[in-house]
């Protein structure tokens, strides 16, 4: 069976420079991410499949 994973730079190839304000160079997965305004997420449903509520690094519970 095949296995599809993220792209990686070739041996002699570098990742693009880190954008102003970012600490590391962007990886392929980040570069292929679509901008927020370019394709607004039009899915109206709260959940599409039975999944656990992952803990969200951008929404910490009050400690």
């Amino acid at each position: 069976c095949g296995q599809k994973t993220d792209l990686e730079p070739l041996a002699n190839q570098e990742l693009p420079p880190a954008p102003y304000g970012a600490t590391e160079q962007p990886k392929a997965e980040e570069l292929l991410e679509i901008e927020t305004l370019a394709a607004p997420q039009r899915s109206v449903e709260l959940r599409r499949r039975s999944e656990e509520r992952a803990d969200d690094p951008f929404d910490l519970p009050p400690e």
Binding site: P16, P17, A18, P19, Y20, P26, E30, L31, L32, E33, I34, E35, A38, A39
Partner: peptide, 18 residues
């Protein structure tokens, strides 16, 4: 088609065509 090119830390080109 979509992509992002970071030419320098300041300059970048992003595009998304559908």
């Amino acid at each position: 088609a979509n992509g992002r090119f970071q030419f320098t830390p300041e300059w970048s080109l992003t595009s998304s065509i559908r």
